[in-house]
Computed example of a mutant assay.
Amino acid sequence: MTLSKIVIWLARALAILGGIVLVAVTVMTVASITGRVFIRLGLGPVPGDFELVQAGVGFAIFAFLPWCQLNRGHASVDIVTSFFPARANRIIDVIAEVLMTVVLGLIAWQLYYGMRDKLAYSETSFILQYPVWWIYAACLLAAIGAVIVSVYMTFVRIGELRDGAPAETPGQGAVH
Rank of each mutant, 00 (worst) to 15 (best):
L65T: 01
V77M: 12
A138V: 08
G164E: 14
W109C: 09
E160G: 05
L3F: 04
D49W: 09
V94E: 00
A174K: 12
A15E: 03
G42S: 07
A174T: 10
C68I: 09
G145E: 03
W109Y: 11
E51R: 03
S125M: 13
V102E: 04
P66V: 02
F59S: 01
I6A: 15
P166K: 09
L104S: 00
E160W: 02
F38Y: 07
N89S: 09
A15M: 05
L10E: 04
R36Y: 06
M100S: 06
G48Q: 10
V46W: 03
W67P: 00
I158W: 01
G42P: 03
L43W: 10
Y121I: 13
A174N: 13
R90S: 04
V103W: 07
W109M: 10
I16K: 02
G171A: 10
V30F: 15
D93M: 02
V7M: 08
S76I: 05
F126D: 15
F64A: 13
M115C: 12
N89K: 05
R40E: 05
L141T: 04
M1D: 13
F64P: 01
V25D: 07
R36K: 09
P131V: 08
I79G: 05
S125F: 13
Y121V: 14
A137C: 09
I95H: 05
R40L: 03
A55G: 14
A15G: 07
S76T: 06
G44D: 06
A88Q: 10
Y121W: 12
L10S: 03
R72Q: 15
F59W: 06
